[in-house]
């Protein structure tokens, strides 16, 4: 089986997701080449072929042009599988390439099951197997689902170029908003999720955080709804935390949230839904309405 892995490069740096792609290739025991729009000064450490296009010429985000460049690499490698990370770069580019190749596309693969790919669905509560029916297949793999592998070595570089002109113009990056609390340093983080029901109940979770002597965090929906500032957001688009104790209050546990807290020392989750995906990482799942449970726990702690 031949793989073409798609590396990522942003703000002048190779992203370390290339090691996860190598980890995936090694998990299925396949030969892998890599495609990257990046820089010859900063190449992934592996011993295969690297199809490299210059990000200074073709941009870091320029999907139509990156698609053309990647199709050239596909033509040379003729891979069985084109593998992206399921990221803002990967989920944006993969369907473009799959459409051009009319290849089956499988998104956010978390494991393999024979010739099928295991993916999550229904907000990660459920799993299913997806079986492609085309000979060439494009997949994106969930960030963190496959162990990173740094092979070492220096790739042999083949340079790619295209005349394709883009209709999409990249303007600029906007840096992440300043964090008013550094959750990463906290020993205890108590986070509020949509299960708290309404904005007024944030204070209830804040009191619990205080009773624990910890910091207040929150899930994305709570921040999107304006119940809590973005500076408190835990997850892949907020802060990544690994406190000694993480208390998830009414958080169902989206993949993005789990990615930001699953390395915590001990995870206590309170949720009405016994099947909520937070149960996948929780050391203790309390099946209860957090609006009733949190004040009772706060009272007991103080």
């Amino acid at each position: 089986m031949k793989l073409l892995l798609v590396g990522e490069y942003r703000e002048g740096k190779l992203l370390d997701t290339s090691a996860e792609l190598s980890g995936f290739a090694s998990a299925i025991g396949a030969d892998a080449s890599m495609f990257l729009v990046g820089s010859a000064e900063d190449v992934p450490a592996f011993s295969g072929t690297l199809y490299l296009a210059d990000a200074r010429v073709y941009g870091e985000y320029n999907p139509e042009v990156h698609k053309q460049l990647l199709l050239k690499a596909v033509e040379e490698v003729n891979p069985d599988l084109v593998v992206f990370i399921h990221s803002s770069y990967g989920w944006d580019l993969a369907p473009r390439v799959a459409a051009s190749l009319k290849a089956a596309l499988v998104s956010e693969v978390i494991a393999l099951a024979g010739s099928a790919y295991v993916v999550g669905c229904c907000n990660a509560k459920m799993h299913r197997n997806v079986t492609p029916s085309t000979s060439m297949v494009v997949i994106t793999i969930q960030a963190g689902a496959f162990s990173a592998l740094t092979q070492g070595g220096t790739p042999s570089v083949k340079t790619l170029s295209t005349e394709k002109v883009s209709t999409t113009e990249f303007v600029c990056y906007e840096p992440a908003e300043a964090k008013d609390v550094d959750l990463a340093k906290a020993e205890i983080v108590v986070s509020a999720g949509r299960g708290i029901g309404k904005k007024e109940n944030i204070d209830m979770i804040r009191s619990l955080a205080k009773a624990f002597g910890g910091e207040l965090g929150g899930s994305r929906p709570v921040v999107d709804a304006g119940w809590l500032d973005h500076g408190h957001q835990v997850g892949s688009t907020g802060q990544t935390v690994a406190p000694k104790l993480y208390v998830a209050c009414g958080i169902s546990g989206s993949i993005q949230h789990l990615a930001g807290m699953k390395k915590s020392g001990f995870i206590l989750a309170i949720n009405k839904d016994k099947d909520a995906p937070i149960g996948e990482v929780a050391d203790v799942l309390v099946v209860a309405d957090v609006v009733k449970f949190a004040p009772a726990l706060t009272a007991k702690l103080t």
Binding site: A104, L105, A116, A124, R128, V130, T131, T134
Partner: peptide
């Protein structure tokens, strides 16, 4: 279709 779906289940 280009893909099929099987084994829908709890995680």
């Amino acid at each position: 279709p280009l893909t099929g779906s099987t084994a829908f289940r709890h995680h």
